[in-house]
């Protein structure tokens, strides 16, 4: 049942945002309202899973056999950029409302370190293809969980008066820190 362990580890113990520090920019940028947080999580989940599959296949069938691993960064980022373009086109056709809601954040998924991070991590951790897909989906779930929790807290915070210098990013960061502390309570669940 290694897959369950991968899932629990990726969602709770080593949460991609709160413990691995990947995906912070969208985390801070899109988390003001729960609706946008949900939309962003969905888009990231989709792109992350497909990107991991493609980059994994390219890594194993092209980069490693031909010993051109030094091209890894360039190939991976190009694959991700192409995928995001594709998702954008598809989303425009299938759900224009969601496309409008996500606005500028959709092309920004390309620069989402979480996507490239996960692609690099599955190579580093030496997973096979199925484990990589499970890892990618679990990471996306963890990302969504952190994002939605954070959006809920921020919606509440927006009704409170704060000292001038603390408004906006500083309070968001300190809240994220407390959330990260809470998630640290999960460490030790997976040996």
């Amino acid at each position: 049942m290694a897959y369950i362990l991968i899932f629990i580890s990726a969602v709770f113990v080593n949460n991609i945002v709160l413990s691995q520090f990947l995906g912070i920019c969208p985390f801070l940028g899109v988390s003001r309202k729960i609706n946008t947080a949900l939309g962003m999580s969905g888009a990231v989940a989709f792109v992350m899973t497909i990107a991991t599959i493609f980059t994994y296949i390219i890594q194993k069938s092209v980069l490693e056999p031909f010993h051109i691993q030094f091209l890894q960064t360039i190939t991976f980022i190009l694959i991700i950029a192409a995928l995001v373009q594709l998702v954008e086109i598809l989303l425009k056709k299938i759900s224009p409302a969601l496309y409008q809601a996500l606005g500028v954040y959709l092309p920004l998924i390309t620069t989402n370190c979480a996507i490239l991070g996960v692609a690099l991590l599955v190579v580093k951790k030496d997973f096979n293809l199925v484990e990589s897909v499970v890892f990618a989906i679990s990471t996306a779930v963890g990302f969504g969980l952190a994002l939605i929790l954070f959006a809920g807290i921020r919606e509440q915070l927006s009704m409170v008066k704060l000292p001038k210098g603390m408004e906006g990013i500083p309070t968001a960061l300190i809240t994220a820190g407390l959330l990260a502390m809470a998630f640290m309570g999960f460490s030790g669940i997976v040996r």
Binding site: L18, S19, P170, A176
Partner: peptide
């Protein structure tokens, strides 16, 4: 020890930005 771990990063940066905001304003 918390400061070299994940939560400490968020909190330290949050306060640093708050201080910078105050200095800049």
């Amino acid at each position: 020890l918390i400061f070299v771990l994940a939560p400490g990063a968020f909190i330290a940066l949050g306060y640093l930005i708050a201080i910078m905001n105050k200095v800049r304003s």
